[in-house]
Design a protein around this nucleic acid. Structure first.
Lengths: 186, 186
DNA sequence: GTCTATAGAAAGATAGAC
DNA sequence: GTCTATCTTTCTATAGAC
C-alpha cells in the first residue's frame, strides 16, 4: 500500500488525538474531518460508520500503549528496575490515559467490540506486570494482586492529575507506592 | 420549602443517576425528563440550561461522596482502622466512581465551575486521608504522598473494574496496597 | 410552576457526480 | 477514492398558554 492509503491514516491519527482529548462519544465525524483535512467522502469511504472509525483508532491506540509498556516491562533489567521504569515513567498525566479514560466513555462502554479492546488492554497490562513480579519471586496470587495495585495507582494518578490539573499528583501517587515496594525489600 | 420543591428534587436525583451511568455530556435533557417523570416546562423553569442542572446535580453528588468518606475517616477508631475502612469499603466498582469518571467528561472538563467541583472533591479527599496519616505519625510530606497513593489506588480500581467488568479487580487493587501498608507496620 | 408546540443548530449518514 | 449536496434525527432551548 503506497502513498494512497494516506487519507485513511490521517483520519486514524486525527481520531486518536481527538479521542485522547474528548473521548469517542463526544468526537464527531466533522471534528475528525477538520483535524485531518480529509474530505467527507473519504471518511465515509474508509469508515462507513462512526463505530468503524472508533474500532480502528482505539485498536491502534491500545497497541501503541501496550508497546510502550512492553518496552519497559520486558527489557533485560532486573525485575525491580523494570517495575520502577513502568511506574515512574514520565507521563503527560494531566492529559489522562488514552485507554483508561475510555472506561467512562458512553459509546465505548455500550459497544461490545470497543469495550473488549479496552478490557484486553488492561488484562494484558496486568499480566505483563504480574509476570515480572513472579520472576521476582512472588507467588502467582500475590503477584496478580500486586500487579493490579500497580496498574491501578497509575490509572488513579491520571484521574487525580486531571481533576487537579497538577502533574505532580501523579508523581506523588506512583512514588508513594514505589516507596512502599522498596521498603519491603530492605 | 414544603412538598412543592419536589419536581426540582426529582430532577436532581434523576440527573445524578444518569451522570453516574453515562456522564454529564452524554445525558440529554430528555433523558432526565424521562427518568424523573417531570415535564419539560418544569425542567427549564428550575434549571434554565443544561449546565445549571449539571452544577446542582454534580455538587450534590460531590457532597454525598465526601460525606461517606468522612464517616469512615473521621470516626473515633484508630488511624489504621480508619484508613482500612476507607480503602476496603465495599464499592459498586463496576459502576465506577461518580466523581472520578467526570474527569473524562468533556462537558465537565470544559466548564470551569464543574471542573472546580471535581477538583475540590479530590483535594478535600486527599486532605482527609492525609490528616489521618499525620495523626498516625507520618511527616506532612510523607503523609501527603501516601494519601495521594491511597486515593489513586481506589480510583484506579474503579477504572480497572469497569474495564474488565469484574468487581474483584477493585478488591485486588486495594488489598494489594493495604497489605503493603500493614507489612510496613510490623 | 407546569404544559404543549416548535425553533435553530448540530449530529450521523446517504446520494450521486466525477 | 474523493467531492458537494442533502436527508433525517436528535439536541438544547424558547414561546406562550394555562
Amino acid at each position: 500500500m503506497p502513498e494512497k492509503t494516506d487519507a485513511r491514516d490521517r483520519l486514524l491519527v486525527a481520531a486518536q488525538a481527538l479521542y485522547a482529548e474528548r473521548g469517542v462519544a463526544a468526537t464527531t465525524p466533522r471534528d475528525v474531518l477538520a483535524r485531518s483535512a480529509v474530505g467527507q467522502g473519504s471518511l465515509y469511504h474508509h469508515f462507513p460508520t462512526k463505530r468503524d472509525l472508533a474500532r480502528a483508532a482505539v485498536g491502534r491506540t491500545v497497541q501503541e500503549q501496550l508497546g510502550t509498556a512492553k518496552a519497559e516491562l520486558l527489557g533485560d533489567a532486573t525485575a525491580r528496575e523494570r517495575i520502577g521504569a513502568y511506574l515512574l515513567r514520565d507521563r503527560d498525566a494531566v492529559a489522562g490515559c488514552r485507554v483508561g479514560r475510555l472506561t467512562s466513555d458512553p459509546l465505548v462502554m455500550s459497544e461490545d467490540d470497543l469495550h473488549r479492546l479496552v478490557e484486553g488492554y488492561f488484562t494484558d497490562l496486568i499480566t505483563l506486570v504480574c509476570d515480572v513480579l513472579q520472576e521476582a519471586g512472588l507467588s502467582p496470587d500475590r503477584a496478580r494482586e500486586r500487579a493490579t495495585t500497580i496498574v491501578a495507582v497509575v490509572q488513579g494518578g491520571y484521574v487525580l492529575a486531571r481533576a487537579t490539573g497538577d502533574p505532580d499528583v501523579m508523581r506523588s501517587a506512583v512514588r508513594g507506592l514505589f516507596a512502599l515496594l522498596e521498603e519491603e525489600k530492605e
